Simulated assay, not measured.
Amino acid sequence: MLETLAGRFERASKDYALNFGIERDPDWYLLKLQEELGELTQVWNRYSDRGRRGDLSNEELHLALENEAADVLGHILLFANRFGLDLPAAIERKWRFRPDGSSKL
């Protein structure tokens, strides 16, 4: 499941990088993840009245939270894929369940 999702993010990210001339060197993966986490934090601050909301409604800010959370998820998967991290195994070790929904440990 995670591998399939990671593959989809990889294809989309690779296409984006090619279209805009971005080099995805090893540092890019972590730096981009940090950037996206910062954007999620910025939206959270606005959503939780710790930052300027502007003219955005709660619904618009909630949608922005969803979008930024999706970016963070995508970049976590890109990072793990790039560096050969076995996230399903790590989830089993750390969270004590199998992400594919199979029987308990």
Rank of each mutant, 00 (worst) to 15 (best):
L56P: 03
M1N: 13
E36V: 00
S57F: 05
A64W: 04
D15V: 02
E23Y: 03
F9M: 00
S57D: 08
Y16H: 14
K94W: 10
A12P: 08
A12C: 03
R82I: 01
A89L: 10
D49G: 00
W95T: 07
V72Y: 07
E92V: 10
G84D: 07
I91W: 04
L78K: 12
W95A: 15
N58F: 11
G54Q: 07
E36Y: 05
E60C: 00
S103K: 07
L73W: 01
R8H: 08
H62Q: 13
R11V: 09
G84F: 05
L63N: 09
L30I: 10
Q42R: 15
A12W: 02
D86T: 09
D49N: 15
F97V: 05
E35A: 05
A89I: 05
L65V: 03
E66V: 10
S102P: 01
S102K: 11
D71G: 06
A80C: 12
Y16P: 00
N67S: 15
E68S: 07
N58E: 13
A6W: 06
R24L: 11
D86P: 13
I76G: 09
G84V: 03
S57R: 07
N19L: 06
A6E: 06
E66Q: 11
D71H: 04
E36C: 00
G74Y: 01
F20M: 02
N45Q: 11
S103P: 01
L61E: 14
R50K: 02
L61H: 14
H62L: 06
R93T: 13
E3L: 06
Y29V: 01
G51A: 01
D25M: 00
N81Y: 05
I22F: 10
I22Y: 14
Q34E: 14
S102R: 08
V72W: 06
Q42E: 12
I76H: 04
F20G: 04
L63F: 02
L5H: 04
D27K: 09
V72M: 06
D100A: 10
R82Q: 15
W28C: 03
R93F: 03
V43G: 10
D15H: 11
F83K: 14
N67W: 05
K32A: 09
E66W: 07
Q42A: 13
G21N: 09
L2G: 06
K14N: 14
F79Q: 08
D15G: 04
L56D: 09
